[in-house]
Design a protein around this nucleic acid. Sequence first.
DNA 1: TTGCTCCTCACGTCACGTGAGGTGGC
DNA 2: TTGCTCCTCACGTCACGTGAGGTGGC
Lengths: 278, 278
Amino acid sequence: MFKIGDFSRIARVSCRLLRYYDERGLLKPAIVDRESGYRFYGAAQLPQLNRILVLKELGLTLDQIGRAISKTVSADELRAMLLIRRSDVEQALAAEAERLRLIETRISQIESTGQLSADDVLIRSEPARSVLTARQTVRSFAEARGAIQQLIASVPRQTPQHALGPVIAIAHSTEFEPDSIDLEFGFALNDGLARTGLSVGGIDLTVHELPIVKHMAVCVRIGLPEHAHVVTAKIGQFVEDNGYVLAGPSREVFLHAPQPDRMDIAVIEMQYPVESVR
Amino acid sequence: MFKIGDFSRIARVSCRLLRYYDERGLLKPAIVDRESGYRFYGAAQLPQLNRILVLKELGLTLDQIGRAISKTVSADELRAMLLIRRSDVEQALAAEAERLRLIETRISQIESTGQLSADDVLIRSEPARSVLTARQTVRSFAEARGAIQQLIASVPRQTPQHALGPVIAIAHSTEFEPDSIDLEFGFALNDGLARTGLSVGGIDLTVHELPIVKHMAVCVRIGLPEHAHVVTAKIGQFVEDNGYVLAGPSREVFLHAPQPDRMDIAVIEMQYPVESVR
DNA sequence: TTGCTCCTCACGTCACGTGAGGTGGC
DNA sequence: TTGCTCCTCACGTCACGTGAGGTGGC
């Protein structure tokens, strides 16, 4: 019989841990003195404790350990628990490795440029989303802006206000041709709007669903359109530095509806689908 | 200006997170209404928030992020923070990889044997420790047991009780020769005992320090000495399964002082120094 | 009597998630 | 008036570490 202090020294764990495991029902002392509350541990408790510590090293929670050491658990159940744990650890491992890559990229950025650039570009996943859009080939951005202004002026009058989300523009051109831009533009929709389309001023809008994008590099730009290429460059740099490649049409989401007279307060999120090339 | 709900939708974070970052001083709303307490965020807050989210993805704590985005931090300080973070992540990565190996070993153990064997063998690091021991070559384990019994009977009378720790035996023989066992045995010492040695019944005991052992495979055995080879086999299996090799003299620590008439309640921790072979 | 060991609360950790209960504007 | 959004507490998370305050045995 060991008192808790001796037992903790032998097992090299804290008394607190032993009391906690007692409380959790993981490892009960062989004897607890009725009146003093003193815990006494027998020699047989030691391999039991070691078993718990081993399972803890595998990363199981105390709840899982409790199940794993209960008499009723079968080898198969234990195996199933470990299989789950394995895939969790594999995921965690991949996440840590990715994190390490990100950190190293940032470090070398600082070392080469003297500061942390592109520190507001981030990758996130975009859910699928319904949009009400038209797709046209326009000859200039000015023409595109005009068409978008027209939509903003007309569509809200013909569509329930609460259903309309932010204005969105999608660049489908795979190569840059200054006088032939394949552009989709319109409104994101907040919920499953029943109507399937509408037409304003010769522009036909249809409802369809934008696919989910698992890895979207996003960066917000604020102010005049001239600022766009700065942000584009930032995203480009980020994408290159972090071993991604562009993978699909980019989007611009107008978080503030664009007002022609106040383009300096435009808030636009630029979104570029990317894929990791390892 | 966005109300917190709009801003949270745009930034794809929870309102709670925004309020929490406000409370922590990481991201203050542009305006807080005096009487209602309503928070209003400006467009400029969005890249600020993204910057915070990026740093969070790198694994910095909110405290560190607070320092990193403060105006007073230099690129060098930021770099230093990231270098520390990198080495932490590298460590975490190695630990996760090790964990994965352990889990896979356990899984294949279950699959081949139908149960989790050697589940009470664990690896831990042993600190350096003073001992009061003799080293002799003995011709049999029986002879060794006799000598140890003699020490147990004599030494405590000549040494302050509180200084004596458990009885310990160390096997220095590198190869197994049944009639020539190079054995060190005596007492672990609880603190820096001043005396440098003593002699009892023709056995000379000296004080010296056992080196630290970074990776010690330990397993407790309870009961008669005949049980020892079972535990030895268990540790051997464990060591092999987990890609370790033996690396130094093994130790036996008698957690209960051995009593000749009650060897069935002996509690002995068997300790084998090991090294990872990757 | 003085240490030493044991006991039982109970707070703190880290970054929020999740109600509870109440208020203001359309 | 009814929803909707906003607010401020305050608890819970996970596995203990770390006192605080008190008691029993040598």
